[in-house]
Nucleic acid binder design. Structure first.
Lengths: 78, 78
DNA sequence: TGGGGAATATCCCATTTTGGGCTATTCCGT
DNA sequence: ACGGAATAGCCCAAAATGGGATATTCCCCA
């Protein structure tokens, strides 16, 4: 197994992302569509089978945080 | 070539890291030692030949930002 | 209570990327 | 120019990824 996959840091990140998506009211398929990726891509990183590079994290966060139908608290100002 | 390697986002990140290390007064070998990685690891990401996952970025930033010999401005408070 | 559609999980494996020791090349001070 | 430090590149076995397809789990409702 690779060097960071399955490390504590990765497990934490994976857990965060795994919770953030449903919190934002999205299914894997929906998020996958926004990211123009297959559903299995989401499944992989949410299940800790794949690393996420920095650029991808930014894209994922952006795609997961944009559901206009849903209440979200104001973005913390720091 | 992979999906994000060589993308604008990656080029930008690579440029940032490539500059940050000497700014912090470190050579590749020194940084590599702190990270317990070979010098070629640093060379690869600084030259855009390898992605950096999120956990690695955190480690790199931490390792590159700790040179106590060197003046650095106060960390911005937001 | 079981039928069925939605959501999530897993398979498979060709293709791509990586790890890292070692060598080569470039830089620079004297 | 010489010499050492720093950076760059080579090589290829081993590891990770991509993504379509399939299987499994959930859960609502008649």
């Amino acid at each position: 197994m690779g060097r960071t996959l399955r490390s504590p840091g990765h497990l934490a990140l994976m857990a965060t992302l795994k919770q953030a998506r449903p919190d934002a009211g999205q299914t894997r398929t929906e998020l996958a569509e926004r990211l123009k990726r297959p559903q299995s891509f989401i499944a992989k990183y949410e299940n800790g089978e794949r690393r996420i590079d920095v650029v991808e994290l930014i894209e994922i966060v952006a795609a997961a945080g944009t559901d206009p139908q849903r209440h979200r608290p104001d973005r913390p100002r720091c």
